[in-house]
Design a protein around this nucleic acid. Structure first.
Length: 815
RNA sequence: GUCGGCGUGGCGGAAUGGCAGACGCGCCAGCCUUAGGAGCUGGUGCCCGAAAGGGCGUGGAGGUUCAAAUCCUCUCGCCGACACCA
C-alpha cells in the first residue's frame, strides 16, 4: 500500500502540554456542589508527598482519572479530589539528615514536584479542593475531631504496656506491629514499655465494624476477610473458678468452649496476672518469681513464636472446677496472654491443641469429654476439636456438644458462677506519638483541674516553628490552664497520622470551611465514596480507622452514611527488573522522561493494557512501543484516512459489519471501564481500530457513517488517552471540549449479529461449524447439523439420542 | 500451622460451564521504500501428515456434566495475610 504524504504527525510533546493548559483554564474537573446531575465520588487514596513521581505511582491515579473522565461524559457530577497525607516521619528524617531543613519546607517542596508530575500525566483533579493534613487549617479540625472523641467518651488516657519502636522513638498501634516488628522497619523488633498514652475506644464499635462488613458487597473479599479476622469476634463464656483454700478468692476465665468444662484438668494464668502472687505456695514462690521475670524480659517475637515449646511452672495452688468440684492445679505460662480475655484460662487438653501440647510436656491429666462420631477414643494422640457427643460430663452426658454449649451456659448463669460472653481480638487504638511532625494532641495538664481539653475556639494548637521534640520545648508547652489562670503544661505527644487520614474524604466536601471540619449538608451530598482506589497495604489500618470515624461522626449526627466507601479496589503494583518500582530501588520510570519520549498518553494506555488491574505487572519497553504504534494508527485512521488505500483482497467492506462492531465496542468498553477492567477495554479498542482499518483497506466508503464511527472511537479512547483524543476531536472540527462531550450510548439492536457461527459437536467434541442466521430453533439447528458430512461421519449411523442446543452458540448431538 | 489468591503458547495475558489462546509483544516469510527502532500483507500452542485431515493440550491425579481453564475432591508449586486471641 502506498502511503500518500502525511499532512499531520502525532507529536505528543506538543499536544499534551497544550491540552493540560486548556483543561486547567476551563476548570474541567471542578465539582459543582449545586449541580442537579447525579453525583459520582471517585477517590484515590491521598498519598504521602514523596516528591518526584514515577510510573509505579501513576497506575491508580490513571485508573481514577479514566473513571472520572468517563463518568463526567456520562452525565455525572464528578468529585475527583486530591490531597496529601503530609504529616509523618520521612519529613523528620530528612530534617535530621539536613540540619536547617524544616519538615514543612521539605514537605511543601515535595508536593510541588508530585503535583507537577500528576499534571504531566494529564490527571485531572479539582485542585480547589486540595487538602494538606500538615497545615493548620486542616489539623485544626483533626484536633477538633479528637476533642469530639473525648467528649463522647471515646478517647481516654491509660497506662499500658505499649509497643515502642526504638528506631522511630515512638509508640505504635497494634495494627502497626507486624510479627512483633515495626511496620516501617521490618528488621526492628518492637519493645514493650509501660507508658501512659491516649487511646481511642474503637472496641466500642467492634460489633458494628464487623457486622457492617457484610453490607460492603463491592469490596474485595480479601479485605473483608482480613478485617473480619482482625476484629476477631468470638463467643463463649466467662466462668469463675474458686481458689482452693482461699475463701472469697476466685479466678475468672474466658472460654469459647464451655461445653468442655468437665474436661478442664488444670488452669493457666498469664505471667502478668494479678492473682499469680496469691495462689503461689511458699514452696513454689522462687520458681514462679523467676519464671515471671524471664517472661517479662522476653521480646514479643520470642513470646509469640508458635514454633517455640510451651514453657510454664506450677504455682502449687489449686482451683475448684465448679461443675464437678474437682481440685485442679494452677500453672503460670506465657502462652496465655494478659491482653486477651481475662488473662486466665481453664485448660482442656483433650480438646485444645495448645493445652494438649502443654499437658504432654508437663505430664498433666488429659480427660476426653467430647467423643467423636466414631465413639470414645482409647488414647488421645492429639486434641480433638471436632463435633461430637458429651462424655464424662455428669448430667450432660449423651448431649450433642453444640447443644451442651447452651445448656452449660444456662447452668452457669442460673448458679451465678458464669455468663455468656463475647470477646474481640481488636484492641483499642493507641494514638499518641512521641514526635514533632504531627498534630499536637489538644489538651493541657493542669495541677488543679487535671486533664483539660483545649477549648475549640482556641484551635488549632499550632506546632512551634522550631523543629525539635515538643517535650524539649518549654517555651511551647508551658501555658496557662484554660479553666483558670494557673500554669499548665501542654500535651507534648502528637496524634497518629492515621487520624489525619481517617476523615480527609469528608473534608473534600467543603475543604475551606472554617467553622467546622466539614459541612454536613455538603458531606451528605457527596458521600459515600462511589469508588475508592488504593493499595492493599491499607486493607486493615486506614480502612478500618476510616470506617470507625465515619460511624462515630454518624452517631454525632454529622453525616448520614455509616460506611464511607461503597466500592473499594486495590490495584496491583508495577514492577521493573523483578522488583516493585521504587525510588529506593532505583528502577522507577520517570514521568518527565516518559512524557518527553513516548508521551503521557502512551504511558497511560500502556499501564492499563499491561495486565489485570488488581495484579502486579512488569513494566516492559517493547509493550510500551506497541501502544505508541496503536495511538499512531488511531491518529492516522481518524485524521488521515485517505492515506489508507484500498487494496482489495480478502478484507470485508461490509458497512453493516463495521456498524455492529462499533456498537458492540461501545457496550463492551463501557462495561469494562465501569468494572475497572482496563486491560480488556484497551484490547476491544484495538479490535475496533483493526476493524476500521480493514474496512478502509477493503474499499469501504468514508461516508457519514464512517465519520460517526471515528467519533465514537475517539470518545471511547478518551478516558485513557485524553490528550491525543482531545486533539483529534479538535482537528475533526468539533466544537467544544471532548472532555465535555457525551458518552456514546449502547444500542443493543445495532450490536446484534444477524449471522452467527453455529458450533456443531458430536458427543461434546467439535466436528464442524456453519454460518447460520441468528435465532434458529432447535429443530432448524438440528437439521443444519445433520446436514453436515463431518457430523454424519462422526455419528457413524448412530442417530442422536439426545440433542443439546444453546441458541446462537452450539449444538451438541449425543449418539 | 490456619485462611485466602494464583498456576493457560516463546512472553504479558483473554475466555468464570458452551469454538481455549481475544488483544498486544516477540518471532518467521513476503511487499513497499524516503532504508526505519517506519508502514503494509500473511503466518505463528504441540505432535503426525505433502495435503486434506487427525490426535494432544490450561501445574498433576481423580470426579461431576451432553460439555470443564472455569464446578467438586486430593495433590504439587508460587504469592499474600494472619499466626499461642482460649
Amino acid at each position: 500500500m502506498v502511503g500518500r504524504p502525511r499532512r499531520s504527525v502525532y507529536v505528543p510533546q506538543e499536544i499534551e502540554p497544550k491540552w493540560q493548559k486548556i483543561w486547567a483554564e476551563r476548570g474541567v474537573m471542578k465539582a459543582n456542589d449545586a449541580s442537579p446531575k447525579p453525583k459520582f465520588y471517585d477517590l484515590v487514596m491521598y498519598p504521602y508527598p514523596s516528591g518526584e513521581l514515577h510510573m509505579g505511582h501513576a497506575r491508580n491515579y490513571v485508573m481514577g482519572d479514566a473513571l472520572a473522565r468517563m463518568k463526567r461524559m456520562q452525565g455525572f457530577e464528578v468529585l475527583h479530589p486530591f490531597g496529601w497525607d503530609a504529616f509523618g516521619l520521612p519529613a523528620e528524617n530528612a530534617a535530621m539528615k539536613h540540619p536547617g531543613l524544616h519538615p514543612l519546607k521539605w514537605t511543601l517542596d515535595n508536593i510541588v514536584e508530585s503535583k507537577r508530575d500528576l499534571k504531566t500525566m494529564g490527571i485531572l483533579y479539582d485542585w480547589d479542593r486540595e487538602v494538606n493534613s500538615c497545615l493548620p487549617d486542616y489539623y485544626r479540625w483533626t484536633q477538633w475531631l479528637f476533642l469530639l472523641m473525648l467528649e463522647r467518651g471515646l478517647a481516654y488516657r491509660a497506662m499500658a504496656p505499649v509497643n515502642w519502636c526504638p528506631v522511630d522513638k515512638t509508640v505504635l498501634a497494634n495494627e502497626q506491629v507486624i510479627n512483633g516488628r515495626c511496620w516501617r522497619h521490618p528488621d526492628v523488633e518492637v519493645e514493650k514499655r509501660d507508658l501512659e498514652q491516649w487511646f481511642l475506644k474503637i472496641t466500642d464499635y467492634a460489633d458494628r465494624l464487623l457486622d457492617d462488613l457484610a453490607t460492603l458487597e463491592h469490596w474485595p473479599q480479601k479485605v473483608r476477610v482480613m478485617q473480619t479476622n482482625w476484629i476477631g469476634r468470638s463467643t463463649g463464656a466467662e466462668v469463675d473458678f474458686a481458689v482452693d483454700g482461699a475463701p472469697g478468692e476466685s479466678i475468672r476465665i474466658y472460654t469459647t468452649r464451655p461445653d468442655t468444662l468437665f474436661g478442664a484438668t488444670f488452669m493457666v494464668l498469664a505471667p502478668e496476672h494479678p492473682l499469680v502472687e496469691r495462689v503461689t505456695t511458699d514452696r513454689q514462690r522462687e520458681t514462679v518469681r523467676k519464671y515471671v521475670e524471664k517472661a517479662r524480659k522476653e521480646t514479643e517475637i520470642e513470646r509469640l513464636s508458635t514454633e517455640r515449646e510451651k514453657t510454664g511452672v506450677a504455682t502449687g495452688g489449686f482451683a475448684i472446677n465448679p461443675v464437678n468440684g474437682e481440685k485442679i492445679p494452677i500453672w503460670v505460662a506465657d502462652y496465655v496472654l494478659m491482653t486477651y480475655g481475662t488473662g486466665a484460662i481453664m485448660a482442656v487438653p483433650a480438646h485444645d491443641e495448645r493445652d494438649f501440647e502443654f499437658a504432654r510436656m508437663h505430664d498433666l491429666q488429659v480427660r476426653e469429654v467430647i467423643a467423636p462420631p466414631s465413639g470414645p477414643q482409647k488414647m488421645l494422640r492429639e486434641a480433638y476439636v471436632g463435633p461430637g457427643v458429651m462424655v464424662n460430663s455428669g448430667q450432660f452426658d449423651g448431649l450433642d456438644a453444640a447443644v451442651a454449649f447452651d445448656r452449660i451456659c444456662d447452668w452457669l448463669e442460673q448458679r451465678g458462677i458464669g455468663k455468656r460472653s463475647v470477646k474481640f481480638r481488636l484492641r483499642d487504638w493507641l494514638i499518641s506519638r512521641q514526635r514533632y511532625w504531627g498534630a499536637p494532641i489538644p489538651v493541657v495538664y493542669c495541677p488543679n483541674h487535671g486533664i483539660v481539653p483545649v477549648p475549640v475556639d482556641q484551635l488549632p494548637v499550632e506546632l512551634p516553628p522550631e523543629y525539635k521534640p515538643l517535650s524539649e520545648n518549654p517555651a511551647w508547652y508551658e501555658t496557662t490552664c484554660p479553666l483558670g489562670d494557673g500554669p499548665a503544661r501542654r500535651e507534648t505527644d502528637t496524634l497518629d497520622t492515621f487520624i489525619d487520614s481517617s476523615w480527609y474524604f469528608l473534608r473534600y466536601a467543603s475543604p475551606h470551611d472554617d467553622r467546622e471540619p466539614f459541612d454536613s449538608e455538603l458531606a451528605n451530598r457527596w458521600m459515600a465514596v462511589d469508588q475508592y482506589t488504593g493499595g492493599v497495604e491499607h486493607a486493615i489500618l486506614h480502612l478500618l480507622y476510616s470506617r470507625f470515624f465515619t460511624k462515630v461522626l454518624h452517631d454525632a449526627g454529622m453525616v448520614e452514611v455509616t460506611e464511607p466507601f461503597v466500592r473499594m479496589f486495590n490495584q496491583g503494583m508495577v514492577k521493573r527488573f523483578g522488583q516493585v518500582m521504587a525510588k529506593s530501588a532505583g528502577n522507577g520510570v520517570s514521568i518527565a522522561q516518559l512524557a518527553g519520549e513516548q508521551g503521557a498518553d502512551a504511558g497511560r494506555v500502556y499501564e492499563m493494557f499491561i495486565g489485570p488491574p488488581e495484579e502486579d505487572v512488569e513494566w516492559n519497553e517493547s509493550g510500551l512501543n506497541g501502544v505508541v504504534k496503536f495511538l499512531q494508527r488511531v491518529w492516522r485512521l481518524v485524521l488521515e484516512p485517505e492515506s489508507i488505500v484500498a487494496e482489495g483482497g480478502a478484507s470485508a467492506t461490509d458497512a453493516s459489519a463495521l456498524r455492529r462492531k462499533v456498537a458492540q465496542t461501545v457496550g463492551r468498553v463501557t462495561e469494562h471501564y465501569d468494572e475497572l477492567r482496563f486491560n480488556t477495554a484497551v484490547a476491544f479498542l484495538m479490535e475496533l481500530a483493526n476493524a476500521m482499518q480493514d474496512y478502509l483497506q477493503g474499499g469501504g466508503a468514508r461516508d457519514a457513517e464512517w465519520e460517526s464511527s471515528v467519533r465514537v472511537l475517539v470518545k471511547l479512547l478518551n478516558p485513557l488517552a485524553p490528550h491525543v483524543c482531545e486533539e483529534m476531536w479538535e482537528r475533526l472540527g468539533e466544537k467544544g471540549l471532548l472532555a465535555d462531550a457525551s458518552w456514546p450510548s449502547f444500542d443493543a439492536a445495532a450490536a446484534a449479529e444477524p449471522k452467527i457461527t453455529l458450533v456443531m459437536q458430536v458427543a461434546g467434541r467439535l466436528r464442524d461449524r456453519a454460518e447460520v442466521d441468528a435465532g434458529l430453533s432447535e429443530a432448524e439447528a438440528t437439521a443444519v447439523a445433520l446436514g453436515s458430512e463431518k457430523v454424519r461421519a462422526a455419528l457413524n449411523g448412530r442417530g442422536p439420542s439426545k440433542v443439546i442446543y444453546v441458541r446462537d452458540r452450539l449444538i451438541n448431538l449425543v449418539p
